[in-house]
Nucleic acid binder design. Structure first.
Lengths: 346, 346
DNA sequence: ATGAAAGCGCTAACAC
DNA sequence: GTGTTAGCGCTTTCAT
């Protein structure tokens, strides 16, 4: 095990000089800098993460908090965050929290305090619905730990970013696409009610219909929980209606895939007899038949931006930053036209 | 910040007694034990991970090394590993390594040494093709770090587990299923050539055919890289053949989904005109139409078992363990019959 | 069965 | 611009 002091001796300088060089601090002569770098290479020195952490109380670790790591959304966000973290020399740890914990303020507080004081993350990334909870955000904020929140809900009066696309505008564009194909009876399948995205996407759907002079028909709006099964169930209900819709907009791709399977099971052709559109552009979207028209969220970029922000904040740990208000980092979505949408049946 | 010494003072015992209690060491009276636990709770004490690490040179962190975190296989394994790690109080970090690094021995050595001395993981989880590299395994082994290898290739003369199903037997069962439906011309789509799984699955396919008295027809065996696109391409080739197969066995589900889309694009009905079977039982399998017959690998369990092994090894860090040979932890697979396979067309 | 003292490898604070 | 000193919070070693 090569220690920093070994490098110092080898290079003929003091411990502190080595430390300065390795942490890119100013006030070191170029000549010494080079000498230190050479010694580091020659001895194969690698700094000890734990010693550095103990002393500087920085862990070089970001935590992404989520209910699970499965599913396209978290998976892809994690992928982006991981690459970015690695690039800046940080670890990324996923920490699982149950929804029960999130929804019970007392338990949430206990959990958070244990979590924060044990792990001491240099930053936290929150995905829905964790990013939607003001209480949870408050707790982390009070501990002075920077947060990147991913999802459409801005939480004001706090010092953190909010990384998202404009879900309403995107959902409106998707609905307008169906309207332009002549659809008038358009079903909608909602997601989790505690996800801000559900409400924003529904708003986009409603707005588009209203602007087209169409009243939102509540019987065409079905519940869902962003899962394939929930989409299939609501799809089966919509397809069984006397006067069934000619198009369905599901609040995410998994549910849209469920609607397509529901159509197959009823021998209803997609898109000839019913158009289906999703949201996310998940892996699934291009792998099913017919391939799914959808809205692409830049999930990888969500993860990357989240990390970039935390790296910047972790760099200058000045408490004064807390005066800054929160702001939204609004990214571009993309409408993806594939083969699941077509002209309305006569 | 509550320190261990604060707990000691509050409980009226020495620092070391608190340490003993918290680490479940013997030789402490029951009365003192309780007193310490009370003080811990009362003060809300949480041990500092970095201080503990620095002194004990254990990081309470496992690293899963992979090319990416996207894709059903790693994602699901990670999910199992994550839950298990959290249960035992360990962090799970995913560390990305490029395939170029894996395949260049010099670079691999440098990367590994930096990685190992900086992160000092308490254990490492390897997925294919990293688990298939004897060189890489050697390097980690020399550093005295326990490894859980996931995948079908046993690497002998080393002290580590090899967690897998019997890919050959499973692939044979899948092929026998097609044979029992009357199929005689059965296509096969391979995966990455540096994954042991590709060869084992092909072996199962060959064995089944041979036992049924059918010669393996090389023109029915196509390459693939486990991706949807590669499956679709090879599927298109198989379907365009003069005397096309009546069934296709793809070495994983993503490629099988590609074959199904290839069939749709050629107006060939699945399973009426061609049967398709996959491998993995990935998320996709039950979400496409027709739903995919496949072999289920217990991916969650792979992750859990990998962690269990590491936790046990990390517990008793006796170097003498290195005498133990490696062994295989053979888990059960499951044949999943769905709707993509049917009787051979006449 | 319990405690006192040493020190893991590094960075912060302060001298020079 | 460079070096010296102290000490982060814990576990290990050794004494009792």
């Amino acid at each position: 095990m090569v220690r920093m002091i070994d490098v110092a001796n080898h290079a003929g300088v003091s411990l502190k000089t080595v430390s300065r060089v390795l942490n890119n601090e100013p006030h070191v002569q170029e000549a010494l800098r080079n000498k230190v770098h050479e010694s580091v290479k020659e001895l194969g020195y690698v700094p000890s993460a734990s010693a550095r952490s103990l002393r500087s109380s920085r862990t070089y670790t970001f935590h992404l908090i989520s209910r699970s790591v499965e599913g396209n959304f978290v998976n892809t966000v994690q992928s982006g965050a991981l690459r970015a973290s690695q690039k800046y020399g940080y670890n990324l740890v996923v920490s699982l929290m149950t929804l029960d914990t999130l929804n019970d303020p007392t338990e949430l507080k206990t959990w958070s305090q244990n979590f924060l004081s044990q792990k001491r993350p240099d930053g936290i990334i929150l995905v829905p619905p964790y990013s939607d909870s003001p209480i949870f955000n408050d707790i982390i904020n009070d501990a002075g730990i920077p947060i990147s929140r991913i999802g459409p809900n801005e939480i004001k009066d706090m010092n953190n970013v909010n990384i998202t696309i404009d879900d309403s505008v995107a959902a409106k564009e998707a609905t307008n696409h169906l309207l332009s194909l002549g659809h008038r009876r358009i079903g909608f399948i909602r997601g989790y009610e505690d996800h801000g995205a559900t409400h924003k996407r529904f708003k986009g759907y409603s707005d588009a219909l209203q602007e087209a002079g169409i009243k939102v028909d509540p019987s065409l709006v079905k519940p869902g929980i962003f899962s394939f099964e929930s989409g299939m169930n609501s799809g089966l209900q919509l397809l069984a209606m006397e006067n069934r819709p000619t198009a369905v907009f599901a609040a995410n791709d998994d549910m849209a895939a469920g609607v397509i399977v529901a159509a197959y099971r009823n021998n209803i052709k997609v898109p000839e007899e019913i158009s289906v559109i999703g949201f996310d552009d998940s892996e699934l979207a291009a792998r099913i038949w017919p391939t799914l028209s959808t809205i692409r969220q830049p999930l990888i970029k969500y993860g990357e931006q989240a990390v970039e922000y935390l790296v910047n904040r972790a760099g200058n740990k000045s408490k004064n930053d807390n005066d800054k208000p929160s702001w939204t980092d609004l990214l571009d979505y993309e409408f993806i036209l594939r083969e699941s949408t077509g002209p309305a049946a006569k």
